[in-house]
Design a binder for these strands. Structure first.
Length: 864
RNA sequence: GGACGAUUAGCUCAAUUGGCUAGAGCAUCUCGUUUACACCGAGAGGGUUAUAGGUUCGAGUCCUAUAUCGUCCACCA
């Protein structure tokens, strides 16, 4: 017989086991014969860095559900992929180029793209190896990349189709511009940060007048592009000035004083300088009032030639110079310190410059197909289940306030627009997947492609169907829409919402039936993990140290969907201990029982005795509850229930304490079920145990999820055994604590002779009489009061009185619980009530309080 | 400004529809055990479930306020 290793060596086992799984081919759904399908398209990580805890926790969740469904006999497809991650990769890769002493411009677009692709693909391979270490049972043969030709083609087609349907347009609008990344950004890619700033009060003199109006601004440099000053129409302070002309200082340009309801009278002076080219609200006001847009800041955040003598200065230089000039002219009134929020680029944290620029937009509320309304409709119709549920509300709210989506980016890394221009008319785009051979208008062959690339979320927003080979691929036909989607709650809008919209448009169906959000993993203090804080935990390091199973368990313990959690080494260590415990349970079974094997079905006569019946009944309940929790997507509760059964009931009680009643067959049976139940959570150690004991070809990964066995006893009796267990434990403790020989002092009445002897054996006490009239009641008495008090006299009286009260509570509970077993419940209820109340009063000398009395009465009332 | 979430043991979190004694893990203390497992076992202490009201026979759970913390969205001239 093979020696069962003394210690679980996860380092050796994990790689071998993963190789075994992969080789078996069961990661591919084709290998599983079943009609029922389960698809989970894994969120493609950005292929430009390392695997981090966020990925790991998502993968743990997905793999747990995936393995669970696979064991339940479903054709499971976990589809992995990688994202090219437009701007982020561009930033990362440009840094790399810089460190190599070159830059994008030197390389040129074609070479840059080629090298970035090379870099990304290499990195994708590296990340794939890291993903495997987490143990994810994904079908690697199907792995996709957002820049794969087939996937790109479908994504581009969507754009062409949208163009034809009048859902995209090219327009000059004010957009968020990142001077550092040199590209436009969607609203979502801009983050706001509260910061202390200065509010400058500047006098704007009226034309041919000594009077002036004071405006307040945080960005004086934009005044070069002012085309009006606005006040609220209700603001009586300025009534007399309305319609007058202002001489814009420094620029000596005439600008009007206009009114607009959007101006807040209470902020600053109530008068606002309007710069349509460099402010979101000003742009709106400018549109409504037909104001000129004067761009005085360029894409590098420098002043343009329209900024007169400040041309070429950076915005900060210009600000200082403008302020000093104003001071010289005595037009500077004062400055105040204010808190205001500044806009930053999500990726590089540079300050955003709002600029007017020619960009491509998706009209989210187009006539032909309203992405916004269709999304709202299907979510309201309940076509997607949200975990947690309240995220549905958050998403709906977002859709309601959704504005047009800027999808063009001025970077090189990503999908270039399938849009072409001929020299003859740069205004008229030709939208087509293929480069046109000649201009349809003038026949010229000099055709250039639009320089823009797509927002990375435009392609990942289509991932749900592109990755499955939409529109004709067999995977699309077989596996769309997927059953499950798991993602971090931080990309709810970026990705989940966009996927819903895009999928509805192209497939007329929702992209997934269920969506589960994971929270952020924080450090011990609850801080975000970040490089600057240096508080990050590297998942690979943890796997090295504690094993993949321990890491997985620690990532899904104590969590609920959408809620942030904290992680630190002790937590992972704690789960490593549990993995060891599982191992040792198996090792004990295998080494202490001759010819031990896992038992699938139990013979009826193996479960005659009380503790066997008890453990089996408890196992049944565990299977039932764990399955239910898993179906409800509640990993934490499933795991907790399972852990309690495994450790407390099976290992500590059935095997350890209950030395006389255990049955090898029952151990084989329970262990068989336990390792199946644990497999989704801790796949490696359970598979290893299975291989050690079974040593057959079949793998645990594809064995069946346990079913409840035919219930050996009526469920109502389950509690009875639980109490029996508790009573025995209690007796043992009393013996231990008081250091007495309790044989003649503690008396137990048992249901029948068999149980009487069990209690005698287990608790090592002598059972006195077996009174006929006590029926099925199990009761512990503390002997004669006198004897009990004798014991008390030897120890601290106060402490023992408290203990005595507790023991009486146990008695109360036991009586309460078993009243259902009695044929005449009324009798016992009354008896129990009297007994408890009087006992307490007698012992502690206080009156039963009103609340408790009410509680008892309430319960009784309900029963009657 | 709008929305959402949270507040339970020293710490991290549970508590499935309002219901049996509010539970785990870590930490602390006591005892036990050294051939399944010191990566162990049995116990104990520790809670006015943020506060104040309300509904109910019964509230951690439902309602109404308040406080504190957090997140997201919008705006900030």
């Amino acid at each position: 017989m093979k020696e069962f290793p003394k210690q679980y060596n996860f380092k050796e086992s994990e790689q071998a086991i993963y190789a075994l799984w992969e080789k078996s081919g069961f990661f591919r759904p084709e290998k599983i014969r079943s009609q029922k399908k389960y698809t989970n398209i894994l969120p493609p990580p950005n292929a430009n860095g390392e695997l981090h805890l966020g990925h790991a926790s998502g993968y743990a969740v997905m793999d747990i559900f995936g393995r669970f469904e696979r064991m339940r006999g479903k054709k499971v497809l976990l589809l992995p992929g990688k994202d090219h991650a437009g701007i982020q990769t561009q930033v990362v890769f440009e840094k790399k180029l810089k460190s190599e002493g070159t830059d994008a411009r030197q390389l040129g677009r074609t070479d840059f793209y080629r090298q970035a692709l090379d870099f990304t693909l290499k990195n994708a391979e590296y990340m794939r190896s890291q993903e495997k270490r987490v143990g994810i049972s994904a079908d690697w043969s199907r792995e996709k990349f957002t820049l794969d030709p087939q996937i790109s083609k479908v994504a581009m087609e969507t754009f062409v189709k949208m163009y034809q349907d009048g859902m995209v347009y090219k327009g000059k609008r004010i957009i968020n511009w990142c001077p550092s990344c040199a590209t436009s950004l969607s609203d979502l890619e801009v983050i706001h940060k509260e910061k202390e700033g200065k509010l400058y009060f500047i006098k704007y003199p009226f034309k041919n007048s000594e009077e002036f109006i004071t405006v307040a601004t945080t960005r004086p440099e934009t005044m070069l592009g002012d085309t009006a000053v606005a006040v609220n129409p209700k603001d009586s302070r300025y009534f007399r000035f309305i319609g007058k002309t202002i001489m814009l200082p420094l620029m000596k340009r005439e600008i009007p004083l206009i009114t607009d309801r959007r101006i807040d009278m209470n902020f600053g002076t109530g008068a606002v300088k309007i710069t349509p080219a460099h402010d979101m609200l000003d742009w709106q006001i400018g549109k409504d009032n037909n104001l000129e847009e004067i761009q005085v800041i360029n894409e590098q955040a420098k002043i343009t030639e329209l900024g007169g003598r400040f041309k070429g200065q950076s915005t900060l230089e210009a600000r200082a110079n403008i302020l000093s000039d104003l001071k010289k002219l005595d037009l500077f009134e004062k400055e105040e310190t204010v808190k205001n929020s500044i806009s930053l680029c999500e990726r590089c944290k540079a300050v955003i410059e709002p600029l007017v620029s020619l960009q491509w937009f998706i009209n989210v509320d187009a006539e032909k197909f309203s992405l916004k309304k269709e999304a709202i409709k299907s979510i309201k119709a309940g076509k997607i289940n949200f975990y947690p549920e309240n995220f549905k509300k958050i998403m709906l709210q977002w859709f309601n306030g959704l504005n047009d989506w800027c999808i063009s980016r001025q970077i090189w890394w990503g999908h270039q627009f399938p849009v072409w221009y001929c020299q003859c008319s740069s205004e008229e785009p030709i939208v087509s997947l293929e480069r046109p051979k000649a201009c349809p208008k003038c026949g010229s062959q000099k055709i250039i492609q639009d320089e823009n690339t797509f927002d990375t979320w435009f392609s990942s927003g289509q991932w749900a169907y592109t990755s499955l080979g939409f529109p004709n691929g067999s995977d699309y036909k077989n596996f769309y829409p997927s059953q499950m989607m798991v993602m971090g709650r931080d990309i709810l809008f970026f990705w989940a919402a966009r996927m819903v919209m895009m999928s509805l448009y192209r497939t007329k169906n929702v992209p997934f039936k269920n969506i589960y959000f994971t929270g952020l993993i924080r450090d011990r203090e609850g801080n975000k993990m970040s490089k600057s804080r240096d508080n990050g935990i590297d998942p690979l390091q943890m796997i090295e140290k504690f094993g993949a199973d321990a890491l997985r368990l620690s990532l899904v313990m104590d969590i609920s969907a959408g809620q942030d959690s904290r992680l630190y080494e002790e937590k992972i260590e704690n789960y490593r201990n549990f993995v060891t415990k599982l191992w040792n349970i198996a090792r004990y079974a295998k080494t202490s029982v001759p010819d031990f094997c896992l038992i699938k079905k139990l013979k009826k006569n193996s479960i005659k005795t009380v503790s066997n019946r008890w453990i089996i009944t408890n196992l049944n309940q565990t299977i039932e509850e764990v399955t239910k929790f898993m179906e409800e997507k509640n990993i934490s509760l499933a795991q907790e229930r399972l852990r309690n059964f495994t450790w407390d009931d099976f290992a500590d009680w059935y095997i350890e304490i209950n030395k006389m009643e255990k049955n090898p067959e029952v151990i084989g049976f329970v262990l068989d079920k336990i390792i199946r139940l644990w497999h989704p959570f801790a796949p490696f150690v359970t598979e290893k145990i299975w291989q050690e004991i079974e040593a057959k070809n079949k793998m645990l990964m594809i064995s069946e999820w346990p079913q409840k066995t035919a219930c050996v006893f009526p469920t109502k009796e389950k509690k009875y055994f639980q109490d029996l267990k508790n009573l025995v434990t209690k007796i043992r403790n009393i013996k231990a604590n008081y250091r007495i020989k309790p044989a003649d002092r503690i008396v137990a009445y048992a249901e029948n002779f068999a149980e009487k002897s069990i209690i005698e054996k287990l608790a090592k006490i002598r059972i006195l009489k077996y009174p006929k009239n006590e029926a099925k009641l199990v009761r512990v008495e503390f002997g004669d009061k006198k004897i009990f008090l004798d014991i008390l006299s030897k120890v601290d009286l106060k402490k023992e009185l408290i203990n005595m009260e507790r023991e009486l509570d146990v008695l109360k509970t036991a009586i309460e619980k078993h009243k259902n077993l009695l044929k005449n419940p009324g009798f016992l209820k009354k008896a129990a009530q009297e007994q408890i109340v009087s006992a307490r009063e007698r012992l502690l000398g206080y009156q039963t309080n009103l609340k408790e009395k009410n509680e008892i009465m309430g319960n009784f009332k309900k029963l009657v």
